[in-house]
Design a protein around this nucleic acid. Structure first.
Lengths: 111, 111
DNA sequence: TGATATATATCTAATGTCGATACTTCGAGG
DNA sequence: CCTCGAAGTATCGACATTAGATATATATCA
């Protein structure tokens, strides 16, 4: 494949951060939730992906703690950046085209 | 990641074969078409994936030539098997969940 | 015949992913 | 206190996947 876009783990992390900042394990939980427990991310994939995304400016570590009631000083929170949102949008659009093709091709049921 | 499903290239090949049998480069063309020229597959990825899918029983080489008018004896045609359709359905459903999440999260536009 | 395009195939390097492991800190119970 | 299990971040090495260069053969057409 050539210019196909984001690695799967990057897409998942960006998606998990789309609605609000989260910390590492919170991202893993969010991904599981969004996928009905279907998709699980191991620590190796997670932290490597976080570093790569941060280095590329698609996410940024943030001091804001979304819910100060339930906090833990060990946590490191990340938020998606505008560039990250753009990448996520592009990847989601790409994926939607293909999923739609599967549906149209009578492979996947309606609803 | 753990049990996430099919590799991207396997999904793409299965999708390209969903509607009818195709040969190697025909699959590459089909993938480009379905993705609006966004996704390109190189030969390394293609032929490796074909072998893996055939070994796993998700596709099968076939002697039927879809369009005998435009033929070329060098071509090797493949068709998707019932097991392949099942895998494709499962993967498309998985992806659709995530794409929907991106849409719901106000990341991706409507239509 | 020669040139170019089509087609399959393989090989190596780069990239991405997984699971085990390590280390630290938090919180609960004794 | 002290210990212990859980939560959290992080790294490492093995393994899987992907990309692109290269090889080789055959069509097709001038």
């Amino acid at each position: 494949m050539a210019e196909s876009g984001l690695p799967r783990s990057s897409f998942l992390v960006l998606l998990a951060l789309a609605d609000r900042p989260r910390h590492g394990l919170g991202i893993v939980d969010r991904v599981e939730d969004l996928s009905n427990r279907d998709v699980k991310m191991g620590p190796g994939t997670l932290y490597g992906t976080l570093q790569k995304l941060a280095a590329g400016g698609l996410i940024r570590e943030t001091a804001d703690v979304p819910d100060p009631d339930d906090d833990d000083p060990r946590r490191r929170y990340y938020r998606i950046t505008p560039r990250g949102e753009k990448s996520l949008r592009a990847e989601a659009a790409r994926m939607r085209l293909l999923v739609d093709a599967a549906v149209t091709g009578k492979i996947l049921g309606g609803a």
